Simulated scan of single mutants.
Amino acid sequence: MNTQSLTERLHAIRDANDWRQFHSPKNLAMAASVEMAELVEIFQWLSESQSRALPADKLEHAGQEIGDIVLYLLLLCAELGLDMDTVVRAKLAHSETRFAR
């Protein structure tokens, strides 16, 4: 995934719609949280086995919500001056060290 290219495309959409005024870090974090809640709602009341075997329509819906979350996080990284690839790799390296057996 080329996060720089994705961020550029997101900024083009943002700028064409004059949304930058709304894209503060606070608002983007809250928007990502709302999208996460929408993802959680898909799984609400499902058993463990049902959650692992979503029907096609729910699986597609889950993918859309995951996409929304990732896009908001890309925008948030850009607003904070963070590189998504760098922060994800750093966190993964930290987890590998912390949880290595």
Rank of each mutant, 00 (worst) to 15 (best):
S49H: 13
I13G: 05
L82E: 06
L46T: 10
M84R: 07
A78T: 00
N27Y: 06
P25W: 06
M36A: 14
P55W: 08
H11N: 13
V87W: 07
L73N: 06
A12K: 11
L6D: 09
K91H: 12
N27D: 10
L76I: 13
H11P: 00
D83S: 13
E41Q: 15
A31L: 14
E35Y: 04
Q21T: 09
S24Y: 04
L10A: 03
P25E: 06
S33L: 10
A62N: 11
L59M: 14
M36N: 02
R14N: 10
L46K: 15
V88L: 11
A78K: 00
H23F: 11
F99I: 02
H94D: 13
L39V: 06
L74Q: 06
H23E: 14
D85S: 12
R101Q: 10
L76K: 10
L46H: 09
A16D: 14
H23G: 04
R52P: 02
I69Y: 02
K26C: 05
Q44E: 10
D15M: 03
H23K: 07
L28P: 00
L75E: 10
P55Q: 09
F43E: 00
P25L: 05
E65I: 06
E48G: 00
L75V: 05
L28T: 01
Q4R: 13
M84W: 15
S47W: 07
V70H: 04
Q21G: 14
H61M: 11
A31K: 08
F43K: 01
E8L: 06
E8W: 01
W45L: 09
L73S: 10
D57M: 08
K26A: 12
R9Q: 13
E60S: 12
V88I: 15
E65H: 08
L82G: 00
D15I: 04
A93W: 00
E60Y: 11
R98L: 15
M84A: 15
E48S: 00
S51K: 08
V40N: 03
H11W: 15
L82D: 01
E65S: 05
D83L: 02
A31R: 09
A93D: 12
A32C: 07
T3N: 12
K58T: 04
T3D: 06
F43L: 14
S51D: 02
R98I: 06
A16T: 09
A31G: 06
E41F: 14
M36H: 08
M30A: 10
Q21V: 13
L71C: 15
N27W: 04
V70L: 14
G63R: 15
N17E: 09
E96H: 05
E38L: 03
Y72I: 01
S33W: 04
A16P: 02
V70T: 08
C77R: 01
L74Y: 07
A53T: 11
